[in-house]
Computed example of a mutant assay.
Amino acid sequence: MVRRVEGCVAKAAIFILTGNESHADYGRLANGLEAAKEFVETDGDEVTVVFDGGGTQWIPELIDAESDYHELYLAIRDEAVVCDYCASAFGVEEAVDEAGLTLVNEYEGHPSIREFVADGYEVITF
């Protein structure tokens, strides 16, 4: 059991890196979105969800209202960004645009993990 410390805030950058090829990938996505939702629901916490690498492939499915993960996505979407380079590499730019998500390209076309670390974020990968 995790002990909560009153007044303690947490900062997390949750990277969704897994593609959508296997049943296990769906589990990693669900766990990443659930973790992000817990941060969103905790007053004072800060979270950014970064869809990077193969994780960018989830965007078309997540914006589909029929998706099993759409409600989880809606709970975290205001905190989500997408790797610019990888959105292009995986051909999901149109879905990212439709979702209204921000493309990030701070380091050679990708999100800067270093920036998150320097800003005191715990980097968590799924």
Results as ranks from 00 to 15, higher is better:
123 V>H: 07
122 E>L: 12
110 H>C: 08
89 A>D: 11
69 Y>V: 07
116 F>D: 03
5 V>S: 01
120 G>Q: 01
43 D>V: 10
65 A>F: 04
55 G>S: 08
34 E>V: 14
47 V>E: 04
10 A>K: 14
123 V>W: 05
62 L>F: 07
24 A>P: 00
58 W>P: 00
67 S>I: 05
1 M>C: 10
92 V>W: 00
15 F>Y: 15
67 S>A: 12
90 F>Q: 05
52 D>V: 07
20 N>W: 08
25 D>R: 04
99 A>H: 06
13 A>R: 01
4 R>C: 05
58 W>T: 01
60 P>M: 02
50 V>S: 00
2 V>N: 15
25 D>N: 13
56 T>K: 08
49 V>G: 04
104 V>P: 01
107 Y>R: 13
34 E>M: 15
47 V>L: 12
37 K>F: 06
54 G>R: 13
59 I>T: 01
8 C>F: 10
116 F>T: 04
6 E>A: 15
45 D>S: 09
18 T>W: 08
54 G>C: 09
119 D>N: 12
106 E>V: 04
71 E>F: 03
85 Y>N: 12
116 F>V: 08
51 F>C: 01
74 L>G: 03
19 G>Y: 09
118 A>D: 14
108 E>V: 11
84 D>F: 11
41 E>M: 09
14 I>E: 01
121 Y>I: 03
96 V>W: 00
58 W>L: 04
120 G>Y: 02
112 S>F: 05
105 N>M: 11
21 E>Q: 13
33 L>Q: 06
96 V>C: 02
95 A>I: 00
48 T>R: 14
38 E>H: 13
55 G>D: 03
116 F>A: 11
12 A>H: 02
83 C>E: 04
121 Y>C: 02
72 L>Y: 13
106 E>I: 04
68 D>L: 13
33 L>Y: 05
65 A>C: 03
27 G>V: 07
32 G>P: 04
111 P>C: 07
1 M>Y: 08
27 G>C: 06
50 V>I: 15
70 H>P: 02
28 R>I: 07
84 D>W: 13
54 G>W: 09
10 A>Y: 05
68 D>A: 15
26 Y>N: 12
82 V>P: 00
19 G>W: 09
94 E>V: 08
22 S>F: 13
67 S>Y: 06
111 P>W: 01
29 L>S: 10
